[in-house]
Computed example of a mutant assay.
Amino acid sequence: MNSSLITFYEAIERASADMLEAARAGNWDHVIKLEGACVLLISQLKNAARNNALSAEESQLKSRIMKRVLVNDAEIRHLAEPWLEDIDDMMNGRRKTIH
């Protein structure tokens, strides 16, 4: 069993859950910081995966982990939509009007 690769997947899942928690709290600076940590973990995983393969059991575990990461990512994106629209408006000089 190649637990080192699974450890990377588990760390990515933890970071993704932390990103979701920060997004739910509206702490977008922390979301961005955690996203950077995820990018680093993914890079390390890619390097480690070059020389190692997962067993069938590990592949199933990886699939379950990645499904949870994708669910977290989808919710983060949903929460980010209004925030991204606000930034787009600010960058394009548009102001929000309150009626």
Rank of each mutant, 00 (worst) to 15 (best):
N27E: 09
N52T: 05
N92E: 13
R24W: 03
S55G: 03
E57C: 05
K96D: 07
K96P: 03
A74V: 05
I98C: 09
E35K: 04
N92C: 12
M90T: 08
R95A: 09
M1H: 10
I42M: 09
A15M: 04
A11Q: 14
R64T: 00
T7Q: 10
A48G: 09
W83V: 10
D73K: 02
I6K: 11
R68C: 00
D29M: 13
D88P: 04
S4E: 13
E75L: 09
Q44T: 02
A11M: 12
R24E: 10
L61V: 12
M66R: 01
I76L: 04
K33V: 07
A49Q: 06
R68Y: 00
W28H: 12
N52I: 03
H99F: 13
R50N: 02
A15D: 03
H78W: 04
E57S: 14
H30Q: 15
M90P: 00
L61W: 08
R14E: 07
N47D: 14
E75I: 13
A49L: 04
S16A: 08
M90G: 01
A11E: 12
L41Q: 15
R77K: 13
D89L: 11
V69H: 08
C38V: 15
L70T: 00
V71C: 02
T97I: 07
N72I: 05
G36N: 10
S3M: 09
E35P: 06
Q60D: 06
L84P: 00
V71L: 12
L34T: 04
V71P: 00
N52W: 02
M91D: 05
E21W: 00
H30K: 15
E10Q: 15
E21M: 11
S63F: 04
V69S: 04
K62G: 06
E75M: 07
L34C: 06
M19C: 10
L70E: 11
A56F: 07
S3E: 15
V69W: 02
E13F: 08
I6L: 15
K67S: 07
L34F: 02
V39R: 13
K96H: 14
A22E: 07
I6Q: 12
L45F: 14
E58L: 05
W28N: 08
W83P: 00
R94Y: 11
A48Y: 05
I87K: 11
S3W: 07
E81H: 01
